[in-house]
């Protein structure tokens, strides 16, 4: 553990990522009390107001304060990211561990299901799921969660396969421990490293995916202060008022970037054998 922190601290980029994420979390938590304006309050006078004293980052076409909406948007994005990544983590890990541990037909069936889900490009699959479920924040979380489940299943399965043959698992089995006990007590703790890394990266994906779905109009409620919706609205105003699209775009990029560098840093620190490769 000490070794982990030492290695992680040396990666200045990853530490910076963590700091930025912490900053976002603070913004998100404080949004209801600290946001300078009501994120929904409209005013024809403040329509497209430039960044300045009243509106630090300007106002959108409805005269809503962009900074306040970004703060509330952080809440939304982090929540979508956390729950979507959580759904994928739990469902994927469970399926992957079962497949890896029991092998045979369990593995065959679960792996094929994952292969099939894996065979659709992520955004298209999320779009179709959203079309089935209908637009809402909860459904966005579910759709993104389903889309990223196979990645976790694959990682959990591969890790389980390699841990399963280890001596301590054999020992537990020979002592008559039940399968569930072994999975929970002996295997899970030993496959957490790659799962933690993937969760961090999935957080980044989920924020991007929510923005993309909302951008296409199949995401959260239209007046929600989602970064993706703000970007979609802003895109039409680029020339009149660059701040409407630029700040949400920066907010998304910075958040995703932070989760990515954090994921890279965790990977290097947790498992030196896994060198940072492609996404």
């Amino acid at each position: 553990m000490k070794e982990f922190f030492r290695r992680f601290r040396r990666n200045r980029l990853a530490v910076a990522g963590l700091v930025v994420i912490a900053f976002y979390v603070v913004l998100a938590v404080l949004a209801p009390v600290a946001a300078p304006h009501d994120p929904y309050a409209m005013s024809a006078d403040a329509m497209l107001a430039e960044p300045g004293r009243d509106h630090w980052l300007g106002a959108d076409p409805f005269g809503r304060d962009i900074f306040s909406r970004l703060m509330h948007g952080a809440r939304l994005s982090l929540m979508v990211g956390a729950i979507a990544a959580g759904i994928a983590l739990i469902a994927g890990t469970l399926m992957g561990m079962l497949a890896g541990y029991f092998g045979r037909w369990v593995d065959a069936v679960l792996s094929r299901i994952m292969d099939i889900l894996f065979s659709f490009p992520d955004i298209l699959l999320a779009l179709v799921i959203m079309a089935i479920l209908g637009p809402s924040t909860v459904n966005v979380m579910i759709a993104i969660g389903i889309v990223y489940t196979p990645i976790f299943a694959r990682i959990a399965r591969a890790s389980t396969l390699s841990v399963k043959e280890a001596a301590f698992v054999d020992a537990a089995r020979s002592m008559g421990a039940r399968s569930m006990h072994i999975l929970w007590r002996h295997i899970l703790p030993n496959i957490t490293a790659p799962l933690i890394i993937q969760t961090t990266l999935s957080f980044a994906f989920a924020i991007l995916a929510e923005a993309a779905l909302s951008f296409l109009g199949l995401g959260v409620e239209p007046d929600a202060p989602s970064w993706g919706i703000m970007l979609n609205e802003g895109k039409n105003w680029m020339e009149h008022a660059w701040w409407v699209a630029v700040f949400p775009g920066l907010a998304i990029t910075l958040a995703v970037l932070s989760f990515n560098v954090l994921g890279d840093g965790l990977r290097d620190a947790l498992d030196p054998k896994l060198r940072s490769s492609g996404a």
Binding site: A204, L208, A211, A212, F215, L231, K235, A245, G249, I252, T253, L254, V256, L257, N260, A279
Partner: peptide
């Protein structure tokens, strides 16, 4: 590059 949304 992997963090910038393509639509932005």
């Amino acid at each position: 590059g992997i963090s910038v949304p393509g639509f932005w």
